[in-house]
Simulated scan of single mutants.
Amino acid sequence: MSRIIQSLSEVSQNYEAMFVDLWGCVHDGVKALPEAIEALRAYRARGGIVVLLTNAPRSRHEVVKQIEKFGVPEDAWDNIATSGDSARVAMFRGEVGQKVWFMGVDFDLPFFEPIKLLDEPLEIERVELEEAEGIVCCGPFDAHAHPDTLRPQLLYAKQKGLKLLCANPDIVVDRGEEREWCAGAVAKLYTEMGGESLYFGKPHPPVYDLARRRLAEIDRDVPDSAILCVGDGIRTDILGAIGEDLDSLFITGGLAAKETKTETQPEAEALAAYLEKESLEPTYSIGFLR
């Protein structure tokens, strides 16, 4: 059974580094969460390293700009690993071809900016679907429209045998009080239709490899046993941590607040029922990062 804790400080002394999800843990898509910021600051003050590990479909530098607007201070983290950077490496290696059809919004266009993680990146060309060799999906065109609205384009792509590169495996996120669809929902639909989707964010291994590289950039040799993964996505953050054999802290007040009956803390019976249904068991659980 996952151990319910009252604060991060109860267990943080056991870990040299943390991989911390952003959306739903550190900010709510609109503003920073004050208790989470203070918890991360306190952890870093004791010598801990914080790598923000996010399924944001954009580069580390773009995420820095975004979280600054939300009020997440630089002294609350050390480095950032994004599914966007992991996916960009794959795109610039040509895993979905040179000519790609882009699915997303203008805010996601920095995804195509030059990358420094490769010596000889492929020159990518954005084209119409009819000319494409593959699809790059940073999200649906309309985050509030059901992914089914994209079925005609996806059917055409499947018939052409196009691979879909999913830059954000999240199905949904909550922006303040509103729930939005993410690229993962589109990729899931495409796979269900018989298409091939390639994933590069949590819970898939490539983004954890990148997170470890970001951790190594701080000049610290941290064993997996001393890393704690923090997140509110049971099928992304927690499943990914378990797959990597890393300890995890489940933030129940995010995406699963209703299912776990979380106001300030999860209701023990509701949490147990939810985890049994998901067949996953995080090391620890807490209502909110604090």
Rank of each mutant, 00 (worst) to 15 (best):
R46C: 10
E10C: 12
C25L: 09
V72P: 07
L122R: 12
A132E: 12
A39E: 05
W23L: 11
V89W: 06
V50N: 14
R60S: 13
D21T: 11
P73D: 08
W77Q: 09
V51M: 00
V136W: 10
R44A: 15
H61I: 01
A45K: 15
A90F: 03
Y43W: 05
E130D: 14
F70E: 00
Q66A: 12
Y15E: 11
P114F: 02
W23Y: 08
F19C: 06
I135C: 06
N14H: 12
R88L: 01
G48I: 02
R93G: 09
L109N: 06
H27L: 05
V11C: 14
E125D: 12
P114S: 00
Q98L: 08
V50P: 13
E131G: 14
M91A: 10
R41D: 08
F107Q: 09
D108Q: 11
K99Y: 01
E120N: 09
E16K: 11
K65M: 02
E131T: 13
F112H: 01
L109M: 14
I124F: 05
D85W: 03
T54S: 15
Q98E: 14
V50I: 15
E95C: 06
A42K: 13
D75F: 06
D21N: 12
A45I: 07
K116E: 12
I37R: 05
D108T: 10
M91T: 04
V89G: 07
D85G: 04
A81H: 11
P110N: 08
G134K: 07
D106G: 10
E62D: 14
S86N: 11
K116A: 09
L22C: 15
T54F: 09
R58E: 01
Y15S: 13
S12M: 12
S12H: 10
F111R: 02
S83V: 05
G24D: 11
S86M: 10
R126I: 09
R44N: 10
K65Q: 14
R41K: 15
E74I: 00
Q13T: 14
R60H: 13
Q13F: 14
D106R: 09
V127I: 13
Q98Y: 01
E128C: 08
V96Y: 01
E62A: 12
A32S: 13
S12C: 11
F107C: 00
V64P: 02
D78G: 13
N55F: 15
D28E: 03
V105D: 10
P121M: 05
T54A: 04
F112Y: 01
E74H: 05
P121R: 01
Q13C: 14
F92C: 00
N14V: 00
K31S: 10
M103R: 14
